[in-house]
């Protein structure tokens, strides 16, 4: 225990520790000095950070091309929306329920397709995401409210003690969840599980030949990633008080995909940077109105030209990763 701690602090340079501390302070102070509008932007940054973290498990750690991640997000959001509006179950109770629902969905859907390789898996995840979205639009059993979605979702509350209904409270809710997720995911990265995931990303055959049950670990990544996306869906639904299919399009999945690649595959600080880019960029360029998406596309291309491994690629061991070696999951 003690031993480990000294080793850890020996490995993380002091400057980095200070940087983390500074960022935490910044995040904590920000909502008290900024207006509600900016706090809301901070909230959506948090949602994208959580979604990015969840996709990072699948795409970043294991290298599975998941372009249907918005589907899991939708399952979480709609589970919350439907159970809350129909049965009045409190939002915070539904938080784990949404996570479980999304995980279960991922398990059932991914089990039969997990053996598919690269782009074939990619198109199947796209199909899965589209099926979810189209199903929501078609209003099965009158549950999902069709294209309009579900309205009148409650705010989260702690048994009447504290109702989370202001921008600032939602801001803290999402960022506390993000912070806890980051701590958990950092632990996983340093564990047998995280290593197994990375091995699969690097070389599936070698991973299998070194005793890693590739199939189960891929499924595990999908299940955990979906669970986390489900949590994001829960918080998103209660913040907006309504959900509709147009929040969960293929386009949304593509944005999440870009978060990982802009930030750096498998890098948790990278996910935060990527999420910031995706959520803050359109706001910063709001004055340019119609042209902002043009700029956005151009930035994506330029990013890939000059930093193909992402802005903050994952550092390994003491030496660090060399971005100029190109992509970690490039086909050989």
């Amino acid at each position: 225990m003690e031993d480990k701690k000294t080793e850890e602090s020996g490995r993380i340079p002091g400057s980095r520790k200070n940087a983390v501390f500074g960022i935490v302070i910044l995040f904590a102070v920000f909502p008290f000095i900024a207006g509600d509008y900016y706090v809301d932007i901070g909230f959506f940054f948090g949602i994208y950070a959580l979604l990015g973290l969840s996709l990072n498990i699948v795409l970043g750690e294991v290298g599975l091309f998941d372009l249907g991640h918005a589907g899991f997000y939708a399952i979480g959001a709609y589970t919350t929306a439907i159970l809350n509006t129909q049965f009045g179950i409190p939002i915070l109770v539904l938080l784990p329920v949404s996570a479980l629902a999304a995980s279960l969905f991922a398990y059932v859907v991914c089990s039969p397709i997990i053996h598919l390789k690269g782009d074939y898996l990619c198109i199947v995840t796209i199909g899965m995401g589209e099926i979810v979205r189209l199903a929501l639009i078609n209003n099965p059993f009158d549950l999902t409210g069709g294209p309009n979605g579900v309205f009148g979702i409650d705010f989260p509350s702690l048994g009447g003690l504290l109702v989370i209904d202001s921008s600032i409270e939602f801001y803290f809710l999402i960022w506390i969840v993000v912070a806890l997720s980051i701590i958990g995911l950092l632990q996983l990265q340093q564990s047998r599980i995280g290593r197994a995931w990375n091995c699969i990303r690097e070389d599936e055959v070698a991973a299998e030949a070194n005793g890693i049950d590739v199939r189960s670990f891929k499924l595990l990544a999908f299940v955990l990633g979906a669970g986390l996306a489900g949590v994001a869906g829960n918080i998103y639904a209660s913040k907006l008080m309504c959900v509709s299919p147009e929040s969960f399009t293929f386009w949304e999945s593509c944005l999440l995909f870009s978060i990982i690649l802009i930030g750096g595959m498998g890098s948790i600080p990278g996910v935060l940077i990527g999420a910031a880019a995706i959520s803050l960029f359109p706001e910063i360029f709001r004055p340019f109105a119609m042209f902002r998406m043009l700029v956005f596309g151009a930035v994506m291309i330029l990013m890939m030209m000059f930093r193909p491994a992402g802005i903050l690629p994952r550092k390994r061991g003491g030496m660090g990763f060399r971005p100029d070696h190109g992509n970690p999951v490039d086909d050989k």
């Binding site: 593509c254 995909f257 870009s258 690649l261 802009i262 595959m265 119609m290 042209f291 998406m293 043009l294 956005f296 596309g297 151009a298 930035v299 994506m300 291309i301 990013m303 890939m304 030209m305 193909p308 491994a309 190109g326 992509n327 999951v329 490039d330 086909d331």
Partner: peptide, 30 residues
């Protein structure tokens, strides 16, 4: 959008393609 990125590998090229798609689509809209 693509040629400068080939050496970096497959995934960066995919993102670049997404970027190109966003540009074209919004160009049409503009």
């Amino acid at each position: 959008a693509y040629r400068p990125i080939y050496p970096a590998g497959r995934l960066p090229a995919v993102v670049s393609a997404l970027g190109a798609s966003i540009i074209l689509q919004n160009l049409i809209m503009v």
